[in-house]
Design a protein around this nucleic acid. Sequence first.
RNA 1: GUGAGAUUAGCUCAGCUGGUUAGAGCACUGGUUUGUGGUGCCGGGGGUCGCGGGUUCGAAUCCCGUAUCUCACCCCA
Length: 401
Amino acid sequence: MITALRGMKDILPPQNQKFEYFLKHTSKIVKKYGFEFIETPLLEETALFKRSVGESSDIVGKEMYQFLDKGGNDVCLRPEGTAGVVRAFVEKKLDRIGGINRFFYYGPMFRYERPQKGRFRQFHQFGVESFGIQSHFEDANIILMTKEILDFFGINYTLKLNSLGCPTCMTPYRKTLIDFLDSVHNTLCEDCHRRKETNPIRVFDCKNEHCQTALKPAPRLNQHLCQSCDTHFSALRDILDDQKIAYELDPNLVRGLDYYNQTAFEFISGDLGAQNAVAGGGRYDKLVSFLNGKETPAIGFAIGIERLMEMIEVPQTSREGYYFGALCPQAIDTVFKVATKQRQSDKVTLSYEKKSLKAHLKAADRSNARYCAVIGEDELANQTIWIKDLEEKTEYTAPLD
RNA sequence: GUGAGAUUAGCUCAGCUGGUUAGAGCACUGGUUUGUGGUGCCGGGGGUCGCGGGUUCGAAUCCCGUAUCUCACCCCA
């Protein structure tokens, strides 16, 4: 038997209903905020992700599905959605046109990781990207929108918020932090030594007690924000406070992708196990120019669809449409004709086999049809059809027409 | 990449210290005094016991390897 590759899942009933339900309502919500659908390729040049997500990130460093195609191009299955959208944005010269562009997308992403609860090698994200607005109002808007989506599906979550600063404040801070880490080098664990090289702020997440103790006097990012980042961040918090949005300031919240700056946020849920981030995003004002576009402020987020689906309950669908069946072989042709006609206006399930009335009723019940309509010898003789309303439990005979 | 647990029917699982034709519940399917579902009763189909080696007279059961799943580290949506 050939099985799906490790960490790759099929989406079959009843999960498929959740998927469609999620997509339908989430698309509807983001459209209210002015976002338009965009589709970008699953396969992109490897250089795109190296330059956007960053070579120091785990995603690019060790999780990419990377290979040479038959033309010898170095390509990757996309590990995330933002890079492709920004590439398209620049390629179509929307940066030159200027103005505001808002896009949403959804689809599979690929990361070669060890599968775990809420973590797959092929998984789906729903994301949005907003280009052209530097204002903290857009940050607030994006957060409000994410909240609206999660609230719609009745998800329990905590919103974590942080500001990652900008090159002006982050570069010197990074140096200050690394200097500090060097000063306590011997007390830090191996993981922290590695973090110091790749993503120094990560050391604050270390679970090792010795490290935590050693890090107590470490310089914190939130005390080193420059004037403009600090203003931006506090203005955003004022809006959230005003809107009565609960959030936790988490100075250790770091987006693992290199392109983020200033506002970073994450919606986490306790119902998801270790992979508890259900949605995350932030501002990336430099990315467009990194990809050779004209500098354009931008902010976006992505939702992990599988993670969200873990927590979604699809409202029960009521009985709908007709089930048609024949009680004797001679009636099958007639049933087929009647059912085909009915299908012009209603959902119709059709049995191609002669079965007992009991069997048909059972099948109709299972198919969640509202009406069970059958034709037997009597009906055939009288040119009628017997119909039972499975909800009202009433039955009647109608003429065939 | 590291660690722990798991793998027996479509699903959830039982199968004691190795011993004859591997079981249950649910699901599926058929029947049940004449053509009545979701809720009775009886029957039926369906398993190379993840895969490959080994120990043994004999392995679902013990040993080794391997794959996959699950959870955690790590990382992130």
